[in-house]
């Protein structure tokens, strides 16, 4: 991410003046991570939420003044709010009679391509969704969005120390996941004895 800083600063400046190529550069650079972030948040339709996010960005770009880090924080803040609103709207729907006892809808996370020696983008994102929400958001904003801990703290309304704790716990839980253990070249060691 850091290596793109200068490029995106320039793209941001051009996009702000209505330059299509500048916007496209921004979009290509950030859209994939935006989608991954929205998947971590359990969005039903990350493409739709990403579109709404970009629409708001384009409409309010004239109000924006800041550097690339500010822009990234702004973009992911909007996306997070959209995801939260969408989740609330979803929660207001009447419960499906068929879904009792089943996990909540987990959206279109694709783990089919996941194999134990090469993990896919979707597989990695799916692993994050198994974390507690606070840890998943912290790791996603820190790693996927590429924000520093202080910016993550601002977005999540927590102290930087609390975010570090969430990150540490989230990364530790991820590292202990049997699938991640297997990726490390170790056999899928059970955390309880007696499982082969």
């Amino acid at each position: 991410m850091a290596e793109q800083t200068g490029v995106l600063e320039n793209a941001l400046a051009r996009a702000s003046t209505g330059d299509e190529a500048g916007f496209l550069e921004l979009w290509r650079s950030l859209q994939p991570r935006l989608l991954r972030f929205l998947r971590v948040l359990g969005s039903d339709d990350p493409d739709d939420l990403a579109s709404e996010t970009w629409l708001q960005v384009v409409r309010d770009l004239h109000k924006f003044s800041g550097d690339e880090e500010d822009f990234r924080r702004w973009l992911f803040t909007i996306a997070r709010h959209r995801a939260i609103d969408a989740a609330r709207a979803r929660a207001r729907r009447p419960a499906s009679p068929d879904s009792g006892g089943l996990d909540a809808l987990a959206d279109d996370r694709l783990v089919e391509d996941q194999v134990l020696d090469v993990i896919s983008v979707h597989g990695a994102v799916a692993l994050l969704t198994d974390l507690p929400r606070e840890q998943a958001e912290a790791v996603a904003l820190r790693v996927i969005a590429g924000l520093d801990t202080r910016d993550v703290a601002k977005i999540l309304g927590k102290s930087a120390g609390a975010i570090r704790v969430s990150l540490h716990r989230g990364l530790r839980t991820l590292a202990a996941d049997p699938a991640v253990q297997a990726l490390a070249g170790r056999p899928d060691r059970p955390t309880l004895e007696g499982v082969e």
């Binding site: 993990i119 990726l183 490390a184």
Partner: peptide, 11 residues
Amino acid sequence: PGLDQVLQAMT
């Protein structure tokens, strides 16, 4: 090492 691979995949 496994976690490193996962984080690389995310980005």
